[in-house]
């Protein structure tokens, strides 16, 4: 019960004594990365973390989990959302729903495009965005349009142009301006 018993903990370099105790549990480890993975703190503030706790281990916490949430009745069955006659809204016909889609803002179109792959609405929003002079880049999987302030310079072989474009970044959910070398066969 004296100090001598602590020597193996203090003197870790010596192999004989070091193996006497499992240091990961006794001495532990620097907790900063564990705390960081928990979101403690987040944005320099203290937030609750247990309500969005994914798993006790960082390795099994690779996706967000849906926290508890409450939808008041007044938020459900709202009529005329997205210009729809039916509640909840639906888009089942390329032919009949084009007019409704023309009334949506750009961001609503982007939202619907990315949120509903392989559906009528993805097709409809594609068509409408093209009408508004947005073009879809096949490799970047992002939409872009010409920056009106600059005229692009077409390459000598006519296969590309270099210019300034406004991209819509679906990760950050914002428009951003970029200089870019645009290959015509990459867009649709």
């Amino acid at each position: 019960f004296g100090l001598k018993a602590l020597v193996p903990l203090i003197k870790q370099e010596e192999r004989e004594t070091a193996s006497l105790y499992d240091h990961s549990i006794t001495l532990g480890a620097d907790l900063s990365s564990m705390l960081h993975s928990l979101g403690i703190p987040r944005d320099s503030k203290r937030h609750r973390v247990l309500d969005t706790f994914q798993s006790p281990w960082a390795e099994t916490s690779r996706s967000e989990v849906e926290p508890k949430f409450f939808i008041p009745d007044s938020f459900t069955n709202i009529p005329q959302v997205l210009q729809s006659q039916t509640t909840p809204p639906c888009f089942n016909s390329v032919q009949h729903d084009q007019q409704r889609v023309a009334l949506f803002q750009d961001e609503t179109l982007f939202y619907l495009f990315y949120k509903h792959p392989g559906t009528v609405i993805q097709e409809l929003t594609y068509l409408e965005l093209r009408k508004r002079n947005w073009r879809y880049h096949k490799t970047l999987k992002a939409w872009l349009t010409k920056d009106p302030k600059m005229e692009p310079v077409v390459s000598s072989d006519g296969l590309s142009e270099r210019g300034s474009y406004v991209f819509f970044d679906p990760q950050r959910w914002e428009k951003c301006q970029r200089e870019f070398l645009l290959f015509y066969n990459a867009i649709m």
Binding site: L31, M34, L38, V49, P56
Partner: peptide
């Protein structure tokens, strides 16, 4: 057991925060 311990530690850190 070492992995269980790490999970337990993380849970206690969460409780200590919340």
């Amino acid at each position: 057991i070492s992995v269980v311990y790490k999970g337990a530690l993380r849970v206690f850190l969460g409780i200590s925060n919340d």
